[in-house]
């Protein structure tokens, strides 16, 4: 435990510029109607929240999140090509084009997915953590949850269950100030969201400036260690979204107060710049390495777009029906069976 090494910091920079390039490209492709669909929730502005906290995990730990999931997927090392192909609903997408932007997952990375019902993934996180406890493993389940979800029943019930069963969950509230368009203080009686932990007897690690990856990491290290040994913890990441709730959110264009707020965050609390300043102040001239990471990100994302656009769309009835169920010898099917699905 301790401070991140130079190699770690440089890698965080790589991850953060990759996410930003990926997300801004998604935004452009959506505007150009090359990515279709109605849901595309971008992680621009949130980068340090995911990068700093997941740096505290080991490979056997678990991660689950809501629908703002692209950044989480890329941090875990999912192939940007498969992620971009999923945005475009292609067969080569990580979910075969069945899930889209909100449903990225990778079993190989212990990434249990992005979920689209606010709070719906929280009991799933508790269940994944239960499996670890059940089998005597000390792996933690890092669970990202938006500020809005802290007001629904799933949050209350899941945190409470994690407390009574001592489940190793790191509940990270990504507080970006808004649940869709509703400010935290209009939605929550308790505006210091981490303090909701007290209601369930859960250890809170307080509020963290989640535009600063180093601060995020320092707290995450302690919180993960606590969760591994004892039980659930809550951390509140104070962050900001650069592209609204989702790409269809035009409030930032329409409302002066919101666009001024956005400019202020971008000018003073930009996570990539904060990390860059930190690296440069500690290690001097690393401009070349950073520039290389930036150039790589552009190339990787461009390649992902080329790959995704060249990929095939699912189009057959079999594509539609496949994976509704697991193929099973215990299921009796005849030509006249109804509602049996195909495997």
């Amino acid at each position: 435990m301790g401070s991140p090494t130079k190699a770690m910091l440089l890698d965080w920079y790589r991850q953060m510029v990759l996410i930003r390039e990926f997300e801004e490209t998604c935004h452009r492709l959506y505007e150009e109607k090359r990515i279709t669909g109605v849901y595309l929730h971008l992680y621009s502005g949130h980068e340090a929240s995911g990068v700093g906290s997941m740096a505290a995990l080991r490979k056997s730990d678990h991660v689950i999140t809501a629908y703002r999931d692209h950044g989480i997927a890329l941090i875990l090392g999912m192939d940007p090509k498969a992620v971009m192909a999923e945005m475009m609903g292609k067969k080569t997408g990580s979910s075969g084009g069945k899930g889209g932007s909100m449903h990225l997952a990778s079993k190989d990375h212990n990434f249990w997915g992005g979920y689209a019902i606010v709070g719906g993934h929280l009991p799933l996180a508790a269940g994944i953590a239960l499996e670890a406890r059940y089998h005597g493993k000390d792996d933690v389940t890092m669970t990202y949850v938006g500020d809005g979800a802290t007001n629904n029943g799933y949050f209350h019930e899941s945190l409470n269950m994690s407390a009574i069963w001592d489940l190793p969950v790191v509940w990270i509230i990504e507080n970006n100030g808004y649940a869709m368009g509703t400010e935290v203080d209009r939605a929550s009686g308790q505006v210091e969201l981490h303090r909701k932990a007290e209601a369930y007897g859960i250890k809170s690690f307080g509020r963290v400036d989640a535009q600063n990856a180093l601060e995020v990491y320092a707290v995450a290290l302690k919180a993960v260690d606590y969760a591994r040994k004892k039980g659930p913890v809550v951390i509140e990441h104070v962050t900001y979204r650069y592209r609204g709730h989702g790409v269809s959110d035009k409030q930032y264009d329409a409302r002066e107060d919101m666009s001024a707020e956005l400019k202020e965050w971008m000018a003073t609390r930009e996570p990539i710049k904060i990390l860059r300043d930190c690296i440069e102040s500690q290690y001097g001239d690393v401009g070349e390495v950073l520039a290389q990471h930036e150039a790589d990100a552009v190339q990787i994302v461009a390649d992902s777009v080329t790959f995704a656009e060249a990929s095939e769309l699912p189009s057959t009835y079999e594509d539609l029906m496949r994976n509704t169920y697991v193929s099973s010898d215990l299921v009796h099917k005849t030509a006249a069976s109804v509602g049996a699905g195909i495997d």
Binding site: I64, W112, A126, G127, A132, Y154, I164
Partner: peptide
């Protein structure tokens, strides 16, 4: 395992546990 009166959590926790390899 006794649970609290938390049907949303019971319903969802079983899903996560099953995905992770248990048979709730």
């Amino acid at each position: 395992r006794d649970t609290p009166i938390s049907e949303m959590a019971i319903g969802g926790l079983a899903v996560g546990a099953a995905m992770a390899g248990l048979r709730p």
